[in-house]
Design a protein around this nucleic acid. Structure first.
Length: 567
RNA sequence: CGGGGCGUGGCGCAGUCUGGUGAGCGCACCUGCCUUGGGCGCAGGGGGUCGGCGGUUCAAAUCCGCCCGCCCCGACCA
């Protein structure tokens, strides 16, 4: 492709709306343009990178026994009512009516559609297992789209669905997808980590997220420095707290005045104690009645863990009036001692010695609070958000927290959808049984963005060869010089004939502009043709990530480039 | 949904507080000349209902009201 023909609007300046580097670079490199909040157009360069990711995914899905389908983006409400998600999915589901006043939505995911498709056609265990996938845009009306392609409202996704006759089969399918995903992200040359994850609105029993490691990631993940355990912080289990040794002696319980001191920060500063000595008392309303939860002052409650522990659907922080009713004090002075409510505690509370808590009395706290002398929770459990340095739940080693971009997510769904929607088959014994399902997603645009987050410098993108929109950038310094132009055209033909994807910068521009654009769009190999090297019958070959170029005789450039592309 | 901010030519911005000077600057774009190893130089030129609607005023980009769009923080979330 010739630069004089390519639709490549690059930008010198950073558009004000772009926060993260991948968004900035995709705009500047002319890959994408925004149409509305969270809705983007792909330009030729961006589309080529996207297609590279999609092709790798296709190959690995096919290799794992998948078959590609293409499902509708517009879906009728009835299907969603059948699965029960029309009401539950919430405002992210973009709903509308057709001219006959029938309800539809833009598909945010395709479990309903695929289950509907399969239930009509699959009758026998002989037709299982089945793995179907598609690559298509989804629409989720996100509350706050941001970071360009990282969190759009309309976004590209590969979604796959497995149907098995039993749990063991579903387990195998899941495992196959786990391996396929690992291969996909390896082939994309990404630094990533599979982590145990929450299942959220998709439902199901078990899942892994594939996280691309990046500081700008929206997710936090916890990994053990000693063993293989890794999980999304939302999910990450924490091992039992270590007892401080030697244990401090218990001191007598004492009430102190803390006028107006409500937050952990205020109380700890006022009393001159570390936040970790405080016992936070959080009050919740649930359908099972009010619940009080204790967490150390420097820890954060994990509502997901609490919800699972209680097995409740409704879980909301208690209102001000509720707090007063339960504790007899305004918000900010709740404590476990003498509190008449169901009491749970994070396991770290067990080893807090001479702690500080609210006194259930306005402007007062208790110091030297000790378990079990002063309070006795019904249970201790793992209820907090994992933090740097927490003990690993599997091996007791130390956990580390890092940031990641969720590019893939695999779920073991079980029979949630097949039962709700009647996707059944007859087994060998002639019994009717629900299919056991799994679903597996990869954000395609997000993967491109993640690759840029991991591969860039101050000048622009540095594409890994497998994702590069083009592999080679031929840059004649001055196209008005016949020798340079001819050498460039010759190499362009030769490399293109070899099957390489080549850009020829045939623009009559200053060299500086061309070098800057070449660096910005990040093509892995640049061939510069200027008088300097050309006099000796050579071209300069430079890898984008390298500091210096090498001079290569014109006749050997083709071979050298192929070597670099493959290498 | 709560809090904050922004909207002036394709992009980045100034001007708005304190109403009135020919709507301006940089980049990009067009023409000509010049130049060609890291975003050259000179000259000329095109492009704006100042987000929209309404109001105040002799006069509104500027003041007031409503609406729309976008961005950031939080809550939320495959």
């Amino acid at each position: 492709m010739r630069l004089t023909r390519l639709y490549l609007p690059t930008l010198k300046e950073v558009p004000a709306e772009a926060e993260v580097v991948s968004h900035q670079l995709m705009l500047r490199a002319g890959m994408i343009r925004k149409l509305a909040a969270g809705v983007y157009s792909y330009l030729p360069l961006g589309l080529r990178a996207l297609r590279k990711v999609e092709q790798i995914i296709r190959e690995e899905m096919d290799r794992a026994g998948g078959q590609e389908v293409f499902l509708p983006g517009v879906q009728p409400a009835e299907l969603w009512e059948e699965s029960g998600r029309w009401a539950v999915f919430g405002k992210e589901l973009l709903k509308f009516k057709d001219r006959h006043d029938r309800d539809f939505c833009l598909g945010p995911t395709h479990e309903e559609v695929i289950t509907d498709l399969v239930r009509h056609e699959v009758r026998s265990y002989r037709q299982l297992p089945l793995l179907l996938y598609q690559i298509q845009n989804k629409f989720r009306d996100e509350v706050r789209p941001r970071f360009g392609l990282m969190r759009g409202r309309e976004f590209g996704m590969k979604d796959a669905y497995s149907f098995d006759a039993d749990d063991a089969g579903a387990e195998r399918s899941y495992q196959q997808m786990y391996e396929a995903y690992s291969r996909i992200f390896e082939r994309c040359r990404l630094r990533f980590r599979p982590v145990e994850a929450e299942t959220g609105a998709i439902g199901g029993s078990f899942s892994h997220e594939f996280m691309v490691l990046a500081e700008t990631g929206e997710d936090s993940l916890v990994s053990c420095t000693a063993c293989a355990y890794a999980a999304n912080v939302e999910r990450a289990e924490i091992g039992p707290a270590r007892q401080a040794s030697p244990a401090e002696p218990e001191r007598p319980l004492e009430k102190v005045a803390t006028p107006g001191m409500k937050t952990v920060e205020e109380v700890s500063r006022f009393l001159g104690v570390e936040p970790r000595a405080l016992i936070k008392t959080l009050l919740f309303e649930t359908e099972q009645g009010p619940v009080a939860v204790l967490v150390r002052g420097d820890h954060q409650l994990n509502e997901g863990k609490l919800r699972r522990h209680l097995g409740c659907d409704l879980l909301a922080l208690a209102s001000e009036s509720m707090v007063e009713e339960l504790t007899g004090a305004p918000m900010g002075f709740a404590g476990p001692v003498g509190l008449k409510a169901r009491l749970l505690a994070d396991q770290a509370i067990r080893v807090v010695r001479n702690g500080v808590s609210g006194a259930n009395e306005r402007d007062a706290h208790l110091v030297h609070v000790n378990h079990p002398r002063d309070f006795q929770p019904a249970t201790f459990a793992d209820l907090r958000v994992a933090a740097e340095g927490d003990p690993c739940a599997r091996c007791g080693g130390e956990q580390r927290v890092s940031r990641g971009i969720e590019v893939g997510h695999i779920f073991k769904l079980g029979t949630k959808y097949s039962e709700a929607m009647g996707a059944t088959f007859l087994d060998e014994a002639g019994r009717e049984r629900p299919m056991v399902m799994g679903c597996y997603g990869i954000g395609t645009g997000r993967t491109v963005a993640a690759a840029i987050e991991q591969n860039h410098d101050e000048h622009g993108i540095i594409w890994p060869v497998p994702l590069a929109p083009y592999q080679v950038y031929i840059l004649p310094i001055n196209v008005k010089q016949g020798a340079q132009r001819e050498a460039a055209e010759g190499l362009y033909r030769e490399l293109t004939d070899q099957g390489l994807e080549v850009l020829l910068d045939d623009r009559d521009e200053r060299p500086g502009s061309k070098f800057h654009d070449a660096d910005l769009i990040g093509i892995p190999i640049r061939i510069t043709l200027g008088d300097r090297a050309l006099k000796g019958g050579r071209a300069e070959v430079k890898r984008r990530e390298a500091a210096a170029a090498e001079e290569v005789p014109l006749a050997e450039v083709g071979a050298r480039v192929l070597e670099l592309v493959r290498g």
